[in-house]
Design a protein around this nucleic acid. Structure first.
Length: 215
DNA sequence: TAGTCGCT
DNA sequence: ACAT
């Protein structure tokens, strides 16, 4: 199934057209205040930073992590590391409110037993973007990806298994959760440059929580 | 190619 | 295309 079949820009995808991928719109967040407070605690312990790609470019998205493992990038490549390279300390533990949200969303998307040990926290300021890429540094590709959107809206690009497959354009906003796994696990994805705005709870940013089973 | 840049 |  190719992403072309999704059709027009504003058309939402469906499980029927994209096996293994689900968008949960406005997922109920039982304790949104606790979620955002936990986010602040993580950023205080492991500050957002702009990582460098193997090509030597500074990423526009600012990142931090929580959980047993964190995704890091430098001139040596991409990898998961139990320690924050900036501090040498372990990443902050994954808050229970994060874990519940991720496992509930995965279960609702048909992936029972998801037990993430890594949560990459991406912060998009206006103009920040992520070019098309695959998540393939995880040990067990049988485990899905759970992506939680907070704050400003963004246009998510969901492509095929080849870089030159035309991506579907999926608008995502605060409270949306995308889950992909199984046949969709290695699909290319990215985010268009963020537009300016102000979210009442999050401010002038989009925050994305990406849950993975890294090890 | 988790990048950027330049030309059609 | 470029360069990692």
């Amino acid at each position: 199934m190719t992403p072309d079949l999704f059709g027009d820009e504003n058309q939402t995808w469906s499980e029927a057209l994209c096996p293994g991928a689900v968008v949960l719109r406005g997922l109920a967040m039982p304790d949104e205040a606790a979620l955002l407070a936990a986010l602040d605690d993580i950023a205080a312990a492991a500050p957002f930073r702009h990582m460098v790609t193997p090509g030597g470019f500074c990423m526009s998205v600012a990142m931090t992590n929580c959980g047993a493992y964190g995704w890091v990038s430098d001139r040596g490549g991409y990898r998961y590391d139990a320690a924050d390279p900036d501090s040498g300390r372990r990443w902050p533990r994954m808050p229970d409110v994060f874990l519940r949200l991720a496992t509930d969303a995965a279960a609702r998307a048909g992936f029972d037993g998801f037990a993430p040990d890594a949560c990459l926290v991406n912060r998009y300021a206006p103009g920040a973007r992520l070019s098309l890429h695959q998540d393939k540094n995880e040990r067990d590709l049988g485990q899905p990806i759970v992506s939680v959107s907070l704050g400003l809206p963004a246009l998510f690009l969901f492509g095929g298994s080849r870089r030159d497959d035309k991506p579907a354009r999926v608008p995502l906003t605060h409270g949306d959760v995308v889950v992909w796994g199984g046949p969709a696990r290695l699909r290319y994805h990215g985010v268009m440059p963020l537009k300016d705005g102000l979210h009442p709870l999050v401010g002038g940013y989009r925050i994305n929580l990406t849950f993975r089973k890294a090890a």
